[in-house]
């Protein structure tokens, strides 16, 4: 008989799911009305924007890098959708996603070609991108006029009694999981996160994989921003500012290590649900809205402290 004690790795990979179940159980016990069909649909619908941002971010964090430009790129995506819908209709969505991919590619080029650490490259890109969003929108929220609301219908309408945004979220999730699990690129970025020098030595073009990862993160961020704009029926040049911490928290709480190499988009689904269930649950239980940010920050620090593989860091800077 082999020992049946689970290893540290197994405990850590099950921990987010167990935590999500415990969290839901606590909230259900505290307020039994929580676990109804309609609340679940609300939770899922509210998760989609955050999940889309976090799914893209997962690729960058898998590398062991970080993308701080996510909220700026998402806001830009929202502004572009709101501005283009009157002239080009549905094509506004791909246009926004393309712009986001461009912003991500720019971060990636700065990071890879100029050898600038990713957090500063994306901080700077974030500054440039939010400047562009403010410039395009003349620093105002761009409202999508009533006669164009039908273009928003694919996002905010219902199909078979389910909000369509949930179906969009499922598609985003499938695309993300497919890229991360079943493509050469997806395997390469995990390997880069686990040990970049070895990947380089085995002949993989590390820089190119990084460029793709940042481009995907940008495209996903803009997609999330576009969905947010459709839900809000307006594009706010600073509309996604508050989403950076929840997005990073969703990735890390789900079990993707900040040092890279372990985790993935599938984990981010669980992480996003934890973040959203915490937020909605706390509001349900009457926890002060302002106290939630404190809890997020603390949960983030705890999650990192637990998942961090310190063997990868000789020196902690």
């Amino acid at each position: 008989m082999t020992a049946t004690f689970p290893s540290r790795g197994q405990v850590l990979s099950a921990a987010p799911t167990v935590f999500l179940i415990l969290l839901t159980a606590i909230i259900v016990l505290a307020s039994p009305g929580f676990f109804s069909g309609s609340t679940i649909l609300v939770i899922l619908a509210d998760s989609v924007v955050l999940f889309t941002l976090a799914a893209g971010l997962s690729f960058v964090i898998l590398l062991g890098s970080i993308d701080l430009s996510v909220p700026a790129v998402a806001s830009l995506g929202g502004v572009i959708v709101a501005m283009l819908i009157p002239s080009i209709g549905l094509a506004a969505y791909p246009a926004a996603i393309l712009a986001g991919a461009g912003a991500g590619l720019f971060s990636g080029l700065v990071h890879v070609l100029l050898r600038v650490p990713s957090f500063i490259a994306t901080l700077a890109t974030g500054g440039i991108v939010s400047g562009m969003a403010l410039w395009l929108s003349s620093s105002r929220t761009v409202t999508i006029a009533g006669e164009y609301r039908h273009v928003l219908d694919p996002v905010i309408g219902d199909s078979f009694g389910i909000p369509r945004i949930i179906l969009i979220g499922a598609v985003v999730c499938l695309i993300g999981v497919y890229i991360q699990r079943y493509t050469k690129f997806g395997r390469a970025i995990r390997a880069i996160g686990a040990g970049e020098s070895a990947v380089r030595a085995s002949g993989i073009h590390v820089g190119r994989q990084k460029l793709i990862a940042f481009t995907i993160a940008g495209a996903f961020a803009a997609c999330g921003g576009a969905l947010l704009a459709a839900r809000m029926t307006s594009g706010n040049p600073a509309g996604a500012e508050q989403l950076l911490l929840p997005a990073i928290a969703a990735v890390l709480v789900g079990g993707t290590a900040i040092t890279g190499g372990t985790g993935g988009v599938g984990r981010t689904v669980v992480g996003t649900l934890i973040v959203i269930v915490m937020r909605i649950g706390m509001t349900f239980m009457g926890v002060d809205v302002f106290a939630q940010q404190i809890l997020f920050g603390s949960v983030l620090i705890c999650a990192i402290a637990l998942t961090l593989d310190r063997d990868l860091l000789q020196i902690v800077k």
């Binding site: 911490l245 002060d288 302002f290 404190i294 920050g297 603390s298 990192i304 961090l308 310190r310 902690v316």
Partner: peptide, 21 residues
């Protein structure tokens, strides 16, 4: 032994949350 940028990112929101509270 957590990298400083993650700790301070967390503390950013903890302290901003406290301030809001």
């Amino acid at each position: 032994r957590i990298p400083s940028f993650m700790v301070t990112l967390g503390m950013w929101f903890v302290s901003a949350g406290l301030a809001t509270l």
